[in-house]
């Protein structure tokens, strides 16, 4: 027969297990959140056909068109909020790991065709995080159970590059 001591032990177990407070408010780029954060600065004039601008990261720099679909996070985050002028803070939740290309993607208004056959006409690279010592090369970011902040870069609407710039030929 269970005695009162058993019940007290059970209640203590409930108390211990229940003491965690669950999900808590998490400010953007909180220290304990796996994410990269920074500030993007907009340059140039936003094209009229802009649907949005979003930031994604690639664990390795894409080697082919097929690799363009290996971005993280998946599904992609929502577009950065308008206005696309001046500068704004961003935060990108990511699983722990090393990311070789943190890139802003400009999306034109329109729907993707099956198999993303029209991706060339709808997507452009609008800027990426650059290596601090070699600004022509992408910068590497490492995420490990904490935010990597100051991943700052420029989004230049006047200097965007279609996919074929990286993977020719261009149509």
């Amino acid at each position: 027969m269970p005695n009162r001591r058993s019940y007290a032990a059970l209640l203590a177990l409930v108390g211990v297990v229940a003491c965690n407070e669950g999900l808590q408010p998490t400010p953007l780029c909180a220290p304990n959140a796996a994410a990269i954060c920074g500030r993007v600065t907009f340059q140039g004039t936003e094209p009229d056909s802009t649907e949005g601008v979003l930031i994604v990261a690639y664990p390795t720099f894409p080697q082919s068109r097929n690799d363009l679909l290996t971005f993280q996070p998946f599904p992609p985050p929502p577009s950065l909020p308008r206005p696309f002028a001046g500068s704004q803070f961003y935060s990108l939740p990511l699983r722990n790991g090393r990311y070789e290309w943190v890139v802003a993607v400009w999306k034109k208004v329109g729907a993707f065709a099956p198999g993303f056959g029209n991706a060339d006409s709808l997507l452009k690279e609008a800027g990426f995080y650059r290596d601090q010592t070699n600004p022509t090369a992408p910068g590497v970011v490492v995420v490990h159970d904490s935010s990597s902040d100051s991943v700052n870069f420029v989004i230049d609407f006047g200097n965007m590059h279609p996919i074929c710039t990286y993977f020719p030929p261009c149509p």
């Binding site: 999900l23 998490t26 953007l28 985050p77 929502p78 950065l80 935060s91 939740p93």
Partner: peptide
């Protein structure tokens, strides 16, 4: 709602609010 998909009030996520999409 996550950052940027609603009035996120500077939060990484807003569990009681929905994604505006």
């Amino acid at each position: 709602c996550t950052q940027g998909s609603c009035n996120d009030r500077g939060q990484a996520f807003q569990p009681f609010m929905i994604d505006a999409s």
